[in-house]
């Protein structure tokens, strides 16, 4: 039931767990008891008001959901990659930027940030779409013309790599079908990997 969309996030999705671990900068407006351990720099058992921390998204989101209109506990600020100067770089030419430099999950993280929501959310939303469109052409080209499986150092984020992988598999399957027809029986992929590992162990 979860296999149909490898890109969609669900309860068991590794990607979704890992992306909610990405850190966001926050400022505490109220003291929190017994949470001093969140700030590794302080010895205090409690967290004091005014503390500035980089917290994993899931913790920040929890405190954010406890915010009420008259009492703010936490204020989440934009992570570096979505700050204005980085947005400018991406708007200028998204296809040259190394998205993985700050986060392996650029788009998914962006989506989470939009949903907080922050004042800049609409701008980030447009930015994500535009960046994806600008970069998609390159992925499309790579998928059709890449000869080897190697695609390291392409500055692609996980979502883009996944698209590239799928597109390449389709392209290879199409090529194979055009050459031989479809009746060729091959060794199962897991078995091939297993045998390779065995060979490596021997040598």
């Amino acid at each position: 039931m979860f296999n149909s969309g490898g890109m969609r996030s669900h309860y068991f999705s590794l990607e979704s767990i890992l992306v909610t671990q990405e850190r966001v900068p926050c400022v505490f407006h109220q003291p929190v008891k017994h949470a001093g351990f969140l700030d590794s720099g302080s010895q205090n058992p409690d967290l004091e008001a005014g503390a500035k921390l980089d917290l994993p998204y899931w913790i920040a989101k929890l405190f954010h959901s406890l915010n009420s209109n008259n009492a703010k506990i936490i204020e989440i600020t934009l992570p570096k990659i979505f700050k204005e100067n980085y947005r400018d770089i991406l708007t200028a030419d998204a296809s040259l930027v190394d998205l993985t430099k700050h986060s392996k999950y650029f788009y998914k993280f962006g989506k989470l940030i939009i949903n907080i929501p922050l004042r800049e959310s609409p701008e980030i939303q447009i930015l994500l779409q535009q960046a994806f469109k600008d970069r998609f052409r390159k992925i499309f080209d790579l998928a059709q013309h890449l000869v080897s499986d190697f695609h390291g150092n392409r500055k692609l984020d996980t979502l883009e790599l996944e698209i590239l992988d799928r597109a390449r598999k389709c392209q290879l399957a199409l090529d194979a079908w055009l050459c031989h027809g479809a009746s060729h029986i091959t060794t199962a992929e897991m078995v091939v990997n297993h045998n390779k590992r065995k060979l490596a162990d021997i040598s």
Partner: peptide, 18 residues
């Protein structure tokens, strides 16, 4: 006054479970 820490621990519990 314990509420925030309580919620934090509960969230951690849920996260570990996940």
């Amino acid at each position: 006054s314990e509420m925030y820490a309580f919620r934090l621990r509960h969230a951690a519990l849920e996260r570990n479970k996940r």
